[in-house]
Amino acid sequence: MQGDIIAVGPETLVREAAQAKVDGYRLVTLSCVELDAETVDILYHFDKDLTLKHLRLTVPKGTPVPSISAVHWAAFLAENEIQDLFGLHFTGLAVDYEGTLYLEDEVRRTPFCRYSIRQSDKNTPAPDARQEMGEN
């Protein structure tokens, strides 16, 4: 992968993101990847003069993630998207759609989480996935 990857924790994330802004980096986007049943990776891609830099945050599902939208306001859309698709919860979002950016109630929550959806549940809401959301 092009660019450096810096591992960050939930407590250093906002500081690192703010530092990137001071250094003149532009926030490209956030990518969320499900690693296994318990953890997800969130990659924060930054760009400066066509070179990329990534922050990698590994968090267990169900722990709230600090939002960087106070520093990079434009992150709110990507964070809302992750909130919709992965069922994570971001604290301090600039604009919080509360999981309705893309999805209607009919659709199961967290459609991007492989480990909480069975193919047979395709047309019915997966009860365990919903429960997980409730616990968040």
Binding site: V28, T29, S31, C32, V33, E34, W73, A74, L77
Partner: peptide
Amino acid sequence: KANGNKNLERLRIRTPTFANIP
């Protein structure tokens, strides 16, 4: 992200309009 299977593990697409909405 791929793990050697024929299906990709994760495909994430960030499109320009998504970045231009803010």
